[in-house]
C-alpha cells in the first residue's frame, strides 16, 4: 500500500514523480502558498478521477460518509457555495449551510465566537467565506476542524485558482510555458492573488493587465509582467483570464466610468483576434457583461467559462477528499499500515 512498492499506481500520464506525496501535508487550505507543487498536481490528478464520478448516473460515492462539513458564508455567493455543497454531497458528507444573514453574526457576535461555537459541535471541516483577508487564518488558529478558504476578502480564493489550472490543463495539456494574461481589477481580486501564486508554480508566464489605479505594487518583483495596455496583454496569449470589476469593494473612483473601462479594457472579439489562434477565455464569475467582457466573447467559442463552473465541483471534491485524508495525522511515506484491518492485496 505504500507508494514505494507500487510505481504502477501512478497514472501513466501523471507528471508526478515517484517521490511525490500521496496526501496533503496541510490541515487547512488557506492559500495556494500552503501547497507544494507536487501537492497541487496531486489535487489536479485527483480531480480528474472525481470528474468521472460526475458523469455517472448515481453521482455519489461514500468516501466522506460520516463527515460533517459546515459551509460558513459571510458574503453572498451562489456559484462557490453551490459548487462546494454539490461536491460535499457527492462525497456523502453531511453538510450544513450557515449564511451570515441568518446567523448570530447579525446580532453582533464576533467571528471568533461564531467559530468557537461551531467548533464546539465538532465539525470535520469548515468551508469559510469572509470579507476580511486572513479570516481563514484566524479560524485555523481557533478550530481543530480543517478550514477551507472559499474566499477571504481581497486575499485568496485557492479552490478557484485550482479550478482554473485544472481547466487550462484539460484544454492545453499542461501549464508550463503557457502565456496567461490576467486582465481586470487586479487590486481587489482574490482570484488573481491565488492564480498569481499557482500559475507561476506550474510554470506559466503570467502577464497582468489593468488600469494603473487597480494594479498591485511591486508586480515585477513577483515575477509577473505588468502592463496597462490590453492589446499588449492579449497579443499571443494562450489563455485570457478576465477578472470582475469589483465595484462593491471600491472606495472612491478608480476609473471614470464603466463605459470608459469597457473601451480601454473590455474583452471584445476584435481584441481577442490578437491572441493565439487557440486561445481560451476564462472568467471566475460573476461577469459584468459590457464592462470587462463583451457578450459575444463570453458566449463565444473561445469561452471556457462554463467549463470552469463544471470543473469546480470535481476540483472541490478532490480538495475535500484529500484534506479529509490529511487529517489522519502522519507525514507521507511514514511507516506502513496497521495490519489489523487488512486490505486485500489489490495493489491498495
Amino acid at each position: 500500500m505504500a507508494p514505494t512498492a507500487e510505481p504502477s499506481r501512478r497514472a501513466p500520464d501523471s507528471p508526478l514523480g515517484l517521490d511525490a506525496p500521496v496526501r496533503l501535508r496541510t490541515k487547512d487550505l488557506l492559500s495556494i502558498g500552503d501547497l507544494s507543487p507536487d501537492e497541487i498536481l496531486l489535487i489536479l490528478d485527483t480531480a480528474e478521477a472525481m470528474k468521472e464520478v460526475g458523469t455517472r448516473s448515481i453521482k455519489k460515492v461514500p468516501a466522506l460518509r460520516g463527515h460533517t462539513v459546515v459551509n460558513l458564508f459571510f458574503e453572498p455567493s451562489t456559484r462557490t457555495r453551490t459548487s462546494f455543497e454539490i461536491a460535499e454531497k457527492r462525497l456523502s458528507a453531511d453538510t450544513v449551510n450557515v449564511a451570515a444573514s441568518g446567523s448570530s453574526v447579525s446580532k453582533g457576535e464576533t467571528l471568533a465566537d461564531t467559530l468557537r461555537n461551531l467548533e464546539a459541535m465538532s465539525p470535520d471541516m469548515i468551508v469559510l467565506r469572509h470579507a476580511s483577508a486572513g479570516a481563514g487564518h484566524l479560524a485555523a488558529r481557533l478550530c481543530g476542524a480543517c478550514i477551507i478558504n472559499a474566499g477571504d476578502g481581497m486575499h485568496e480564493h485557492p479552490t478557484q485558482a485550482l479550478v482554473d489550472a485544472f481547466t487550462i490543463r484539460e484544454r492545453k495539456g499542461g501549464l508550463a510555458g503557457l502565456r496567461v494574461s490576467i486582465i481586470g481589477d487586479l487590486l481587489h481580486s482574490r482570484v488573481f492573488r491565488s492564480n498569481l501564486r499557482l500559475l507561476r508554480v506550474l510554470g506559466a508566464q503570467v502577464c497582468a493587465c489593468g488600469p494603473a489605479t487597480l494594479m498591485l505594487p511591486d508586480m515585477e518583483r513577483l515575477g509577473v509582467r505588468a502592463t496597462t495596455s490590453v492589446d499588449d496583454a492579449v497579443a499571443g496569449a494562450d489563455v485570457i483570464m478576465l477578472l470582475r470589476v469589483q465595484l462593491e469593494r471600491m472606495r472612491g473612483h478608480f476609473f471614470p466610468s464603466r463605459r470608459e473601462y469597457f473601451q480601454r479594457f473590455g474583452m471584445t472579439m476584435a481584441r481577442l483576434r490578437r491572441a493565439a489562434p487557440d486561445a481560451v477565455v476564462m472568467h471566475p464569475g460573476p461577469m459584468n457583461r459590457g464592462v470587462e467582457i463583451a457578450s459575444e466573447v463570453a458566449d463565444g467559442s473561445r469561452s471556457v467559462i462554463l467549463e470552469q463552473v463544471a470543473n469546480g465541483v470535481a476540483v472541490r471534491m478532490a480538495v475535500l477528499y484529500l484534506l479529509a485524508g490529511s487529517r489522519r495525522g502522519a507525514a507521507p511515506g511514514g511507516p506502513a499500515l496497521d495490519g489489523g484491518s487488512g486490505w486485500d492485496r489489490a495493489g491498495e
Binding site: G134, H155, L216, L222
Partner: peptide, 19 residues
Amino acid sequence: TVDGVAHEGGAAALLGLRG
C-alpha cells in the same frame, strides 16, 4: 489611508490588506 490596515507594499498587496 482610508480603511488601510498595513503598509502599502508588496506584503500587504499579496495578503489582500488595504494599504
